[in-house]
Write a protein that binds this DNA or RNA. Structure first.
Length: 647
RNA sequence: GCCGGCUUAGCUCAGCUGGUAGAGCACCUGAUUUGUAAUCAGGUGGUCAGGGGUUCGAAUCCUCUAGCCGGCACCA
């Protein structure tokens, strides 16, 4: 590379090479290509790095011009919007310090340090100011400063957080500053050439607290969230999507479909009603069949276990604060309500001699657990203090880890698919920096085994560095709720430590006692959370096999009451969960009621049907009805209601 | 746990700057026997989340507590 030549070569995506003056900008290049592109160009990629449209190119490069339809442009709209919001906030609320403000999925946020809290009334004001700034079309300027100068500058302005941010950049490096009119911020960029480029399709959405640098030990800042799009139509579509999502909220549907309720006296716990518990049992039985088929045994262990066992397992030390305790004065004992099942399963493993011939031993339990979760973490039935895990522990040899892990991943994906989930995110959480037990060598083996299992199952995953459990690495299988929040459901954890700590051994082929390796695993995770996700995924319109009420027989006139009861009996005999509605109401009313209740099949009977032993079938969401003979209907529904593993 | 907001009938929500509570649906009672998304009429129902305070007077103002909602932190 000749750094002093007056000209440089610029390679375009189509392979064309332009020879241009050193210091030429993206805007210049776009203009050379054509006036249309000159207008549309917003930013560019230079040798894979993001450049502002007005930033000079100083060396030979491959460039790609970014226009509004590129995803990158949407990201920039959001990033620019966060800057413009910060500018608006500092104009409206002098003395507010800026910190960081990135673009995120669907929008952006900016964290501010300010003594006064922002109120919901402030959002429209800030939004209006933002529109002013956009209309003013302030030009953007990029400056590169030495690190020390930038630190001194922001300190002088009283921007402590910005100064701290720059201080964490390695010494000797330059930093970039962006100016929009008079206002400026430390930023990596890139940004549009002026404020008007973002358009007007943005909206501020919420106020939240957020810790400086994501650490609860630090000061809490005020975060303002917003959403931003290419145009109004996209913005409207997003807002409509959010409105629709609210309608599938499991808490709302849970009440509407009479599935469960929660109340103050049992915060973080669930009162399951008949309909909800029917769904629960259907799901539980499905899991039970699947794991039995996969070679698991099922056990049940105590709720209250002496603290001594939790001390031995290491949980007392790590999670004492989050455990419910039961004290028995007479016996002077402290019992913990079990927060997890593994120590109990080890007790079963230890009871009696085990041989290598018993391994792998797959021990499952629908284990009821209690954890004192922080009050702010509670969320409907997704995050609760009392929950049931579809838990299991696979006791195996080191050599069996990989096959067992791969088999588990396969089982999990099969079950997720059968339950209607195809979009699953997988995260591999590796060893924590501190507070971990076991040797590095064991962590190496364990982390590799999980990665191998994912590869064997051909599943993509992301790495979550340092997020593993204190005793081992874990795979987390994450599902999304209706408004895009991620929830961990399935998990697989490799544990070389717990069996040794609690004295679990087996007789190996050579006659010596060895500690087994333990795989902690769950597929649904918590029954409560998974049902919450199921509700939101289906918006309450469950597939027939899961629906709490599968059919309602509704009469048109009371003359048909007797026949209707016969229909209900016949369906129940065929294993269908059928209700009956003999109310003195018009059929219109009944159709509406049961449609709103999301009953999959409404079976209408009047005089005609009673005479012919038929029913008029109205399927949920389908206006057209079909008249069909009673026996044929029972057979058809029974077939359709067969769980996927039995079909 | 932290920041902010919210809490009025079973549900969804009105109730202006303080003058002892209201609608729709649901529920109950009648009438109506009805053919695919609300038949009509009447009626029951609230310690306005709970405690304390200000005031002649509090759903409304202040304060504490709890729960919930949105984030953050946490999640064996």
């Amino acid at each position: 590379m000749s750094s002093s030549a007056p000209e440089i070569h610029v390679t375009l995506p189509d392979g064309k090479i332009l020879t241009v003056a050193r210091g030429t900008t993206g805007a210049d290049i776009a203009a050379m290509i054509g006036p249309g592109l000159a207008k549309a160009a917003l930013a560019l990629e230079v040798n894979g790095k993001d450049y502002d449209i007005f930033r000079p190119i100083e060396e030979d490069a491959t460039v790609k011009i970014i226009t509004r339809k590129d995803d990158k442009a949407l990201e920039m709209i959001r990033h620019d919007a966060s800057h413009i919001m910060a500018m608006a906030v500092q104009e409206l609320f002098p003395g507010t310090q800026v910190t960081i403000g990135p673009s995120i999925e669907d929008g952006f946020y900016y964290d501010f340090a300010r003594n006064q809290p922002f109120t919901p009334d402030d959002l429209p004001k800030i939004e209006a100011k933002m529109h002013e700034i956009v209309k003013a079309d302030l030009p953007t300027r990029r400056d590169v400063w030495p690190r020390e100068k930038a630190i001194a500058h922001f300190k002088e302005l009283g921007e402590q957080y910005k100064a701290e941010l720059i201080e964490s950049i390695p010494a000797g490096e330059d930093v970039s500053l962006y100016w929009h009119g008079d206002w400026h911020d430390l930023c990596r960029g890139p940004h549009f050439a002026s404020t008007a480029k973002i358009g007007d399709a943005f909206k501020l959405t919420k106020i939240a607290g957020a810790y400086w640098r994501g650490d609860a030990k630090n000061a809490q800042l005020q975060r303002l969230y917003g959403t931003a799009w290419r145009d109004k139509k996209e913005l409207e579509a997003y807002l409509t999507r959010m409105e629709e999502a609210e309608k599938r909220d499991h808490r709302k549907i849970g009440r509407e479909m009479d599935l469960f309720h929660q109340q103050e006296e049992a915060a973080g716990q669930v009162f399951w009603h008949d309909h909800g518990y029917t769904l629960w049992r259907t799901l539980e039985n499905y899991v039970r069949r699947k794991i039995a088929h996969a070679g698991y045994i099922e056990v049940k262990t105590p709720q209250l276990i002496d603290r001594k066992l939790w001390e031995a397992s290491g949980h007392w030390e790590n999670y004492r604060e989050n455990m419910f305790i039961a004290e028995v004065e007479e016996e002077n004992k402290i019992l913990a309500v079990k927060p997890m099942n593994c120590p109990a399963h080890i007790q079963i493993f230890k009871d009696g001699l085990k041989s290598y011939r018993d391994l792998p031993l797959r021990m499952a339990e629908f284990g009821s657990c209690h954890r004192y979760e922080p009050s702010g973490a509670l969320h409907g039935i997704m995050r609760v203090r009392a929950f049931v895990q579809d838990d299991a522990h696979i006791f195996c040899t080191e050599a069996q880890i990989t096959t067992e892990s791969a088999a588990f991943c396969q089982l999990l994906m099969e079950m997720y698919r059968e339950l209607g989930f195809t979009e699953v995110r997988v995260k591999l959480s590796t060893r924590p920096e501190e507070h971990r037990i076991g040797s590095d060598q064991q962590w190496d083996i364990a982390e590799k085994a999980l990665a191998d299992a994912m590869d064997a199952a051909h599943l993509p995953y992301t790495i979550n560095p340092g997020e593993g459990a204190f005793y081992g690495p874990k795979l987390e299988f994450v599902l999304r709720d209706c408004i895009g929040r991620d929830w961990q459901c399935g998990t697989l954890q490799v544990d070389f430590n717990m069996p040794g700590r609690l004295g679990a051994t087996y007789i190996a082929e050579d006659g010596n006692r060895k500690n087994p390796v333990m795989l902690h695993r769950a597929i649904l995770g918590s029954m409560e959370r998974f049902i919450g996700i199921l509700i939101e995924n289906y918006a309450g319109k469950f597939p027939l096999w899961l629906a709490p009420v599968q059919a309602v027989v509704a009469t048109i006139v009371s003359d048909a009451d007797g026949y209707a009861q016969g229909v209900q009996t016949a369906l129940k005999k065929a294993g269908i969960r059928a209700d009956i509605d003999l109310a003195n109401e018009k059929i219109n009313y009944k159709v509406r009621q049961h449609s709103l209740a999301k009953v999959p099949y409404l079976l209408v009977v009047g005089r005609k049907e009673a005479e012919n032993r038929t029913v008029a079938v109205r399927k949920l969401g389908v206006e057209k009805q079909e008249v069909i003979g009673l026996e044929a209907l029972a057979a058809q529904l029974a077939e359709e209601a067969t769980p996927p593993d039995l079909a």
